[in-house]
Design a binder for these strands. Structure first.
Lengths: 356, 356
DNA sequence: GTGAAAGCGCTAACAC
DNA sequence: GTGTTAGCGCTTTCAC
């Protein structure tokens, strides 16, 4: 069927070793021989078989990538960074989505190990308690987390400071005059990063001297935010004037639901999301959010692994800077309840002030 | 290092053939032996090496997927369908993005061939004239296109009837009272589907007795729509009242640009996109668009290949139905120029009418 | 500068 | 039911 290295050797009247040396540019091969071999390769349309090579070298030049979902642009963007980076280095990328299911995480890590991927890039539900990562650790397979917020255990991760970002959100909302805030999040059990954002948010609200924000969990997949919102805004005088959502997709749903409830954003309620997905700026109102450098996170993770696999003492993955974008969905509290507004001079747009 | 089938055989006191039979559930193996082997497998933490298996079977149980970009939700959604379907069948997915570059298409097909993927799922710039597909054809490697609009050449594709969809758009706009339309598209050379949409659109406008819509190309990557729009709306009396954009991302940019030009949508101009990306319904105005069943397209493509690889005479990939969603971005022409409106009774929302 | 040969981990006849 | 053995296509010492 397809030509093998042996066919080429025969065709060119050389040994397989020579052919191998040529296609890998390893070892010397005379100019005349090289030409003959090259010719044979073209004549037979030969493509070296990566499987044979991998079996021999015990390397596949392949990364395994595991994300919760590809339909969430924030992950698609990171994967995009990974594939671009990998491709440039001659690496391939295998990918799976786990649907936020930690059993799937473990299963996928298992099958990727059987595929003998050289390293993995992944986002798990909880980096502190993860059978999938335990497996990776005991197998000593190189990997780096993205988005995750691993506890001090020191698992390598390219991420942002989620807690600081959460605190920043509280600070900004308080600057806008908000005094009663709440957070709506996907299940914390399924997201260490959402937990970190919450912790930072609560700490930020506390140090600003505000009442403890109410925190509500929703099923992120089903996205049934209506019930939670009804409950939250049941008693107008104590209802929050600002909502922090643990991710952009959730924030978008919340804004829509509030609108249908007769609580338009930002006139009646301010909403800030998290992730910084691209379409956020095209929404109306434009989405206020914490921007994670997703593509860059994917690139940095891939780059780190490339270095590591090359035997270089790679710099440990670090925290990347985030940016708070104050879109139209977060306005001064005064819009709804002028009495609460402390800083009426605060302009409606404050992006540049908070960008960094 | 990692345990091999031979280690297990020795540990369990059996031959490698028996171990192989057990892990592949091929051939018989006695209950007692099976237990001993199973035990050894667990004790040594054995994971069979897919590379060795692939070399032996000449099958990798891997699909290669090539799309223009993962950051465009329409493709991410299809890939999501592919991975889900593949995973269920024990297949893996390798992925790359070509950035709408046909040289990249060819290069990626080449490397995927070296990786010996069993089949490929891809979207190319032009399915009629594609070195990448030529290569696939001569290599007789199974593949199916998604999104592409292959000419009669009979290249297998899971897609929608782009021309019919384009015609439908013209028909709907004319129903809304629009008499002067235009189309804005990415480079046709980079998208056979955009070309088909244009052809259908023009034919539809023609058979409705309307003036030939003006058609403008923009660089989809750079997304520099401003110049094109300025030109298009230079002379108000002859300016179009409705714009058909070749995809949703482009439509979203166009709506934003029009807004900045003082031509709000849909009050002054109607805009219809193409793709049906999920966030479209959360935009304001909600995006009128032609919905492609992206996830399903990915699933159907994968399913088809699974059948084919299983040796079954797979049903040839077919056209899937599309749906026109008349979101708020497309309104009656009367909004801007009551004189043009022929059917004032036409309700603002007409979704159900056009859904199918 | 080039060749011979021993594997890499697995599967699949075929033999018993 | 289980074992023997010959590859699958490649890389890589080690000779020459």
């Amino acid at each position: 069927m397809a030509a093998t290295i042996r066919d080429i050797a025969k065709e060119a009247g050389v040994s397989v070793a020579t052919v191998s040396r040529l296609i890998n540019k390893s070892g010397y091969v005379g100019a005349r021989t090289a030409a003959r071999v090259q010719d044979a390769i073209e004549r037979l349309g030969f493509r070296s078989n990566a499987i044979g090579r991998s079996l021999s070298t015990a390397k596949t030049r392949t990364f395994g990538v595991i994300v919760p979902a590809l339909s969430n642009p924030v992950f698609a963007e990171a994967v995009s960074g990974v594939t671009a980076c990998a491709r440039k280095a001659g690496y391939h990328v295998m990918i799976t989505a786990t649907n936020y299911d930690s059993a799937e995480e473990l299963a996928t890590v298992g099958t990727f190990m059987e595929q003998r991927v050289d390293a993995m890039i992944l986002t798990v539900a909880n980096a502190g308690k993860s059978p999938a990562l335990d497996l990776l650790d005991t197998a000593a397979l190189p990997y780096v987390l993205i988005y995750n917020e691993p506890p001090c255990t020191g698992r390598p991760a390219v991420t942002i400071d989620n807690a600081a970002a959460g605190a920043k959100v509280a600070e900004v909302l308080q600057d806008l005059g908000h005094r009663r805030m709440a957070m709506i999040s996907g299940r914390f059990a399924e997201s260490d990063r959402a937990s970190a954002r919450r912790d930072g948010f609560l700490a930020g609200a506390h140090s600003a001297g505000l009442a403890m924000p109410s925190v509500r969990e929703v099923d992120f997949i089903a996205l049934n935010v209506d019930a939670v919102l009804k409950d939250l805004f049941d008693d107008p005088p104590t209802a929050p004037t600002a909502l922090f959502c643990s991710n952009d997709l959730l924030a978008i749903s919340v804004i829509g639901a509030l609108d249908r409830m007769g609580l338009p954003v930002p006139q009646n309620v301010s909403v800030i999301g998290f992730d910084g997905i691209a379409i956020g700026t095209h929404l109306h109102p434009t989405l206020a959010t914490v921007i994670q450098p997703s593509r860059e996170m994917g690139e940095v993770a891939a780059q780190h692994l490339l270095h590591r696999l090359a035997g270089e003492k790679a710099t440990p993955p670090c925290r990347l800077p985030f940016t708070l974008r104050l879109g139209e969905s977060a306005g001064p509290a005064g819009n709804a309840r002028p009495a609460d507004l402390q800083d009426p001079a605060n302009p409606r747009e404050g992006d540049s002030h908070y960008d960094r």
